[in-house]
Design a protein around this nucleic acid. Structure first.
Lengths: 200, 200, 200, 200
DNA sequence: CGCTAAACGAGACGGTACGTCGTGTCTTCTG
DNA sequence: CAGAAGACACGACGTACCGTCTCGTTTAGCG
């Protein structure tokens, strides 16, 4: 019937070494300048081993991106949307101020632009991040801190848009002040109604 | 003194041939696969002539894109911030929905990430776009449609952040609805004060 | 221990293809005009393969010369120095009248002048040729057809000097007459003594 | 009369600067490595000025060679062929032992091989040198120091053959001993007749 | 335990494109 | 209007990687 297997098994250590080296290399030189030759040497692996398991540079990068894009931001729960958001953005922005992190994110974005194959895992990563923020907003909506019919996806994109825009261009910082203003803006943009001045 | 110049001048025809060929080639094979060798041959130009005037593939591409990317958005002036913004974003978003345009912008961004050397003209381009929007917002501030001390740069980044975030990822459209919501969000985020109810 | 070798071994066929192509190319276009690019293409080999094994154009040419410069002239043995020499020179000169041969020799000489790196194998080749003639002369000396203390190296240089001088300049032919005269001149220059006839 | 001439006259100094630089450059780097670009820069001259007056690198080299190759050997006149020749060869060989001289001669030869265009002035130079020696031999023939019908051209080639052969290869010196042996060899090879004892 | 077979590090292979340099031609400006 | 400066189209230079192909070695299951 089916021959189960013969010969040496795949060396998992080699696989990990390649992925780790890929992440480091991507951060270092970007998607352009990313070389299988260099990757293999950095990983201490033969070129053929790379080609045996990944069909292309894009595939390695894609897997590297997918593997690394796991880190999550803890969702705060202070009971009020404004403070929840402010805290969430502060944590997020502080992470993004780390040059290594922003560098990695930028190069992941560039890779995603250059090659659609790498885009898929990257987009999934982004979708996960959006989902985090959305659940925060949903909590606010459930507490009626938002007008009915508020477009949560829009607000999410607004928030991550600021993060990425400043992160990619670097013309202005992602500091605590920006986090506070962003939280306030989201709250203002989703405020329930202009009529009844709030009390509570 | 100043030596005015000696020797043959730059051949403008060659420059144009290169830029034209670059645009065609970019559309044909994309940023990857874009070869200086092929570019020179297509343009009927020596490779050296390309390298003489552009430091890198990215630089040629940047200029090619920049040459074509002259489209300016007319600043509407309806007398009210909300409608001005809505109109501005609608026009902007509609342009960005063109696959060719968004593709060029994405590749400009990727090139800017991969190669900081090319980033300068791109950042200037972005700064110009921000300045357009900012002048619109300033008009609103002058009309006291905004709270004192509103951070116009923050609002600008918020707006372009949404544009770029959706443009780069493509997970949701930049349609008229988004434009309207964005205008409303900016207005809400900069509203003069919750205390004094409006009196139209 | 000793690492025996790792990785694929050198492809001997490629080496031979390069050398063969080098010989042909050298004959065709000379040392100038000899292009590594063309050599690689003619040999059906990657340029890198050439550069991997030879440090320079000169080195390839040197090896090509060394490989090809094996053809030996049979040493005649008629029992008398004069006829031995005459026969040897006739054979040698006739070979040298072939335009292809003389062309190759000239270009070898030029290469040896231009680039000392190529000189070594060429000089060895020349030394081999001198050794052939010298053994002929030694036989004559052993038969006491020469004066004691005759400088065989000088005679050898005299003979090959004529060959090369005419070969390089081409102002006069290397024909049978020249061969005969050369043989006679060597015999005269090495004659044992003015034994019987002359006095003084 | 004469047209007063308009505009700048041809700069003879530029021509000389080129030739001088060519000689120096040729000695320095040989025919290979000889660059018009470098020549123009060394001469402090525009490339076009070189091309205006010489059709090719070979032509410049040819003229440089022709200009410099003027040095003549004084013809000795001792009354006897053997001593005349010995003196002539000693003088000639001593000049040729100068590394600068031999280097220049070798590169001239190489240039002549590589590029037939440069060969003409070089061959003329060689012909002049042969003519010198031939006139010496003719004097000996006139004095009946030679057999009737001796091939003077052959003897000339024999002599210069030795000079060039040793000069080009450098395996043995062109010293006074060699000069003496060469003179003796020529005398022996042209001796009037073994039978008839001399009767001066 | 010995055999077969696959995976491994290493690295040579035929290629393509790189960015630089020199060619010979052609402006352009200065003296 | 000759001459320097230098841009031009062309093409070879020597290098870096591409993706494929041996090599000899290591490691696993099967008989």
């Amino acid at each position: 019937m089916e021959r189960p297997h013969t010969g040496r098994r795949r060396n998992e250590a080699a696989r990990e070494a390649v992925i780790d080296a890929a992440i480091a290399l991507l951060q270092d030189v970007g998607y352009e300048g990313f070389t299988i030759e260099r990757l293999a040497k950095d990983a201490g692996v033969g070129k053929q081993t790379v080609y045996r398991w990944w069909p292309s540079k894009a595939a390695v990068v894609a897997e590297a991106i997918g593997t690394r894009a796991q880190h999550t931001i803890p969702l705060p729960d202070t009971g009020a949307l404004g403070t929840d958001l402010a805290e969430f953005f502060q944590t997020t922005f502080r992470q993004s101020e780390d040059p290594a992190v922003i560098n990695q994110l930028k190069h992941m974005m560039a890779a995603s632009i250059e090659n659609p194959e790498t885009a898929a895992p990257f987009k999934e990563f982004l979708a996960n991040r959006r989902a985090s923020l959305r659940s925060l907003l949903e909590r606010g909506a459930a507490r009626h801190e938002m007008a009915d019919g508020t477009d949560l996806d829009f607000l999410t994109d607004l928030a991550y848009g600021l993060l990425w825009y400043r992160g990619l261009i670097g013309h202005r910082p992602l500091d605590d002040d920006a986090a506070r203003k962003l939280a306030a803006a989201l709250v203002a943009a989703s405020a329930p109604a202009p009529s009844a001045p709030s009390d509570s």
